[in-house]
Design a protein around this nucleic acid. Structure first.
Lengths: 104, 104
DNA sequence: CCAACAGATAAGCATACACTTATTTGATTC
DNA sequence: GAATCAAATAAGTGTATGCTTATCTGTTGG
């Protein structure tokens, strides 16, 4: 839940890939594994790290365990970015565009 | 310059503290070190990692080397966040407020 | 020039980490 | 209730990482 934990969780490419696959939508561990060249335990371990960092949640459905992205998981990082937003003025225009889209 | 390098650079608490101190303003290695309980080489090594990740730049002035935050250093991470912005709808309101302030 | 000083590099060490194979757990379904 | 299947855990291994002390490099002021 703290910044360090989240940064660390996202710092590993394989684990970030796992997270990105979950962004596509709810998946069980087997589905997450598809296309990734790592063992089943490795996926399980990565999911545990992501869960402890607050980035994903598990949803138990019978014998299956589905994983979903936690909408608030990235919040601490976004807060951190906000603190240093003075250093990304170039982003402002893009955000304006984004917000215009969202207003429609 | 790639996401993994930047995430890794920011994942270490001490190194992130170094970065945050530079956000306060341009500093040389000795000034960065103040208040942090690590050796001079450790600071030097952290600065190298941050520099290779594109987060800070060095400015040589005679015998002194000053370090400054690179304004574009965080861009790859912000791009990454944008890709998953659907997962932080709660942020939109805050950003709107920010943009209003900036418009004035 | 050379003494002094800032900072980088070298070398070594202990721990963390990502991964593997083997095994266990836990929940259906037949 | 035994077989089956998904996922977790155990145990072990090689590498990466963050740190230290010691040494080197390079610039400047006396």
């Amino acid at each position: 839940m703290n910044e360090t934990e989240i940064f660390k969780a996202l710092a590993d490419p394989t684990r970030r890939a796992v997270f990105e696959r979950l962004v596509e939508g709810e998946k069980n561990a087997t589905q997450v594994r598809e296309g990734l060249d790592v063992s089943q335990p490795a996926i399980s371990q990565h999911l545990t790290v992501l869960r402890k960092a607050g980035l994903v949640r598990e949803r138990r459905i019978g014998r299956h365990v589905n994983y979903v992205v936690d909408p608030n998981g990235l919040t601490p990082l976004l807060d951190w970015f906000d603190r240093y937003r003075v250093y990304w003025p170039a982003r402002i225009e893009r955000l304006k565009t984004l917000l215009k889209e969202l207003d429609q």
